[in-house]
Design a protein around this nucleic acid. Structure first.
Lengths: 124, 124
DNA sequence: CGGTATCCCCCTCGATACTG
DNA sequence: CAGTATCGAGGGGGATACCG
């Protein structure tokens, strides 16, 4: 974990606090760790998906939040939206190369949580 | 990324949706990706810290949220709180072994965000 | 099918004041 | 120093209705 700490200290400027209060990293972190951001990225990491598929796979998400989160992830360059000009409409969402990079950081975390979650919450 | 996907599908039951709506993983994910959770974990990953140090290092956090987030992380078993019985009071916070495991999943993500954040937000 | 638009509740979060 | 208590604003986010 040498590189990690090096980058952490150098880039975050740890002596000035972990992530200066108003810095781009905080904003990106907020986007990624928004209520639905991680789940959508992970969902798309398995395969490209249509709007209706995302709604099913990301259980519990409302149409509003699906749209809102997808827009943010799209603007950040993590997600690619491709509307086929067909009728009825069909729109495919997929991860960009940047999104794939991000998902590679997220998947180990999700794995670990999935494995440990029950044990974690079963304490008092 | 074989293991990752395997565990992802097996544990998350991807065919039933990514993380069933009401499952322990969702709760842990919410705790970890709460507004301040990641920042506190990362801060403590460098060294044990006192309350006042955390307030300085995690810039912008209020006392209320610091207390609240620390309690949650403590209950989840990520953070250890040790109150020295001294006067004036002194309380040390550190990561538990479980918290260290978690931080090892979080640090690569933070690194990546720190490196890429500016580029990400600089697009339209 | 793949979204917007609107309403509005609730819950997070910050600010302030107080305490052992 | 290390918190707790309380209040109140804001916006995240759900429900519903509507649209191309």
């Amino acid at each position: 974990m040498k590189v990690s700490n090096a980058v952490l200290k150098d880039t975050f400027g740890f002596t000035d606090g972990i992530l200066p209060a108003a810095c781009p990293s905080r904003t990106v972190l907020d986007h990624v760790t928004s209520k639905w951001g991680v789940l959508i990225i992970v969902a798309l990491s398995t395969s490209e998906m249509r709007w209706s598929e995302l709604r099913e796979v990301v259980q519990g998400i409302s149409e509003k939040m699906l749209a809102q989160t997808l827009r943010t992830l799209e603007q950040d360059g993590f997600v690619l939206r491709v509307a086929q000009g067909t009728i009825p409409p069909r729109v495919d969402y997929s991860l960009t190369p940047l999104g794939i990079e991000l998902s590679e950081k997220l998947l180990p975390l999700m794995d670990w949580i999935a494995v440990n979650a029950t044990g974690i919450l079963s304490r008092d």
